[in-house]
Amino acid sequence: MNKSNHTHIVVGHHDNSTRGTLATYVIGYIFSIYLTITAYLLVENHLLSHTPLFLFILALAFVQFIVQVFFFLHLGRETRPRWKLAVFFGMVTIVFILVAGSLWIMTTLNYRMSTKQMENYVESQARQGI
């Protein structure tokens, strides 16, 4: 009795972590098409001014990202321990640091490397005899 119960649980785990259903694929597909076409029409017709338009289509991309990760890759359907989810959040953290950090540094480069600062730096190096 106990044995059969346990086996059943294990099989269930196998099902959850690897399989979707027709419904999840169809819903994911329709949602994705809807989000893609919406973003395309917004840009094609310039329905917003530049910055809000970019932020909005970026938000649409993130929604589609979440939709496809859950409906196509079935993240979050695994049972404990949720290793996939743990690795996924690790990836999101690294990607955030990488992209936001790079953009932060590179867009403020002028501020950090102003001519005055560079002159001061060169002078201080010259004073040290370098």
């Binding site: 970019f54 990202f65 496809q68």
Partner: peptide
């Protein structure tokens, strides 16, 4: 299939950040 779905997910961002962003301004 995981690999293939993953590539489509990456493409969402190429479409948005490269092509759509490129056509905004």
């Amino acid at each position: 299939s995981m690999f293939w779905h993953f590539l489509d997910i990456v493409w969402i961002f190429i479409f948005t950040i490269v092509y759509l962003r490129g056509m905004i301004a």
